[in-house]
Design a protein around this nucleic acid. Structure first.
Lengths: 347, 347
DNA sequence: CCTATTAAATGGAACGTTCCAATAAATCAA
DNA sequence: TTGATTTATTGGAACGTTCCATTTAATAGG
């Protein structure tokens, strides 16, 4: 059934008693070959255990059917959710996405991008690693390969971005906290080398300003975007002379860390200290207490990014509009009852 | 800087005033070329914006440096952790892993495997989707491509498997519950079309038998391996005449669901009903209450799988030993205090 | 029956690399 | 100086496809 050396279309041709061109045509589902011939060929393909060599084909055809998906942190469930959204649309377009993880490491990212390009992908969807240098994508751009960024953008780049409305989300969340009666607010986690950070922090600041919170009553603590980072942020904040009573966290992971640290201190999240997260990962609703968070529709963003990519490939362009996804605040228990009256607003 | 059509080694050769062979040699880092020539070539490579065409190269070379990693559920943090372990060892071996998600869908799995093979991967690490037919990997095997299974095995297959000691883990956990004084035990989640399920259930049964729990005092409820499945399992169990007082769950996701459902019923996990999970994902220790779970060292298993794969590729064989990873029970709060005395054992 | 048209199948060149065998240049032994 | 050896470089064939131009076979029109 399986000859040692791998079979090629010539082997199939010999087996089926036709020419290699005919086999090639069958492989591409051309309508030019007689159905009976096609059948004979297909049988031969099965018999010799043929596997198509896309590398050889691409040598002539140029366009492959794989697109690369480069993700900065696979362990963040947020990205997994986004990936699932993308896969849904790619699948129905006959495109196969290959995922590669950079683990937030620009060097690794470089390697991964190189490998993907060498492999001849048709396009790249990237959530850039922190600390990516501005020139990191120059090569890919000049090669004319379509790229779209998701979630994160690079400072000066002209590459299209698919991301949630970070500014608005942060503003909403902050206003909600202020509406609950909090007067000393903190922004926890993230670091200023991320554009997203500035967007979210900007929304936070804007809401404070608009609603009459003096900037000396706000506290900004940078930190890792992980549970650990959240724990550290809370420690820092509580060590202050007049600590905040509520915090907007850079993302849900940070928020989980903050809640953990509160508990460890004997404080109850929600009652003693309000916390709200960002991203609304699935865990958020299952936590104790359930986490109030800014929902960004990760799967939807993934789908959108995939669509944009398909369109770019199809129209062989390297330009596309940015897409800023709608966000909405999902109010749960982690920001507690009103400080004055009762009743929480629904999302 | 970038000519429109993509540059080939011939363009480089022309630019540098050498032959294509020389360029090829430089590309491979051969020591045969004079350093100054190499430098000149490298400059030309930069100038023309060259990107290596691995497809063309593989046409002659046979072995590529990418291996495919096929995962049944990317949203399960467990697999992400495993993936990270693999990446660590592959990176230092100069191998790039491409990850593809099958979303537990055998048809999708088929497509993904096909695509990966066509792409000319050097090997495949697979956690098979539920419902994978026994013959699904025949093609790949006869093609002589190395495969290793992780976590799951197929009923009759000779493909090497890297997995935790499910039987022992379940036995340990069950014995722990019995040691705490529980007499009516349940096994929650999973379904019998998974080999893992039988292994874990087997361990559960063996412990019960060995420690004098009659099988009429045990309850087995199949269900989805997710939070939702866990919720359903608990509902079913509590509807019984003499409900169990403790449960071993198929995995942590199920356990989280069970704890959630307990809370919803006004029962306190740990105090009113003991639950232990399986896998020990990072969330386990952060839950309220913290989840007792069987730690399987996912990253370690990933590393192991990667090592086995590298060895198979290197020795061009398609056979390898199975590896059963050590497990250990991490006791936390979700299985409560002893029903008789106090004091929990440390992990 | 011959020619024009359509349908089906085919040979050969090209794609971008690697690698072998061959050449050219430099160095060494005598 | 000559031949042998080493060091650098090179042309050409091969890898497995696709696609164009061509051939062959079948069908239709008159």
């Amino acid at each position: 059934m399986a000859s040692r050396a791998k079979a090629t279309i010539l082997d199939i041709a010999r087996e089926a008693g036709v020419s290699k061109s005919t086999v090639s045509l069958v492989l591409q589902g051309s309508g030019l070959i007689r159905p009976e011939t096609a059948l004979k060929v297909r049988k031969a393909i099965e018999d010799v255990g043929y596997v198509y060599n896309r590398g050889a084909a691409n040598l002539r055809k140029a366009h492959s059917n794989v697109i690369g998906m480069v993700i900065n942190d696979l362990t963040n469930p947020f990205f997994a959710e986004m990936a699932v959204g993308m896969e849904r649309v790619f699948q129905s377009a006959g495109v196969v996405p290959f995922i590669a993880n950079t683990a937030e490491n620009p060097v690794r990212q470089e390697e991964v991008l190189k490998s993907l390009m060498e492999q001849g992908v048709a396009g790249l969807i990237v959530s850039p690693a922190r600390g990516t240098t501005p020139g990191a994508f120059r090569r890919i751009e000049t090669a004319g390969l379509p790229i779209v960024f998701t979630m994160r953008r690079l400072p000066e780049s002209r590459i299209p971005v698919i991301a949630p409305d970070n500014h608005r989300g942060a503003r909403l969340a902050t206003a909600h906290l202020i509406g609950k009666g909090h007067r000393r607010l903190a922004f926890f986690g993230g670091s200023s080398d991320l554009v997203v950070y500035h967007e979210r922090l900007g929304g936070f600041r804007e809401a404070c300003e608009a609603l009459g919170i003096a900037s000396r009553d706000t506290l900004v603590v940078e930190g890792e975007t992980s549970r650990r980072g959240g724990i550290a942020c809370l420690e820092t904040a509580l060590a202050m002379a007049e600590p905040p009573t509520a915090a907007l966290c850079f993302n849900d992971a940070v928020a989980f860390g903050v809640m953990l640290a509160l508990r460890k201190r004997g404080l109850e999240p929600g009652a003693d200290f309000a916390v709200v997260g960002f991203d609304d990962v699935v865990e958020a609703q299952h936590y104790m207490p359930a986490l109030t968070s800014v929902a960004v529709d990760s799967a939807g963003l993934g789908e959108r990014a995939a669509h944009v990519m398909l369109k770019m490939i199809q129209s062989r362009t390297t330009r596309a509009e940015d897409h800023i996804g709608a966000v909405n605040l999902v109010v749960r228990d982690s920001c507690g009852p009103d400080r004055r009256a009762g009743m929480g607003d629904a999302a």
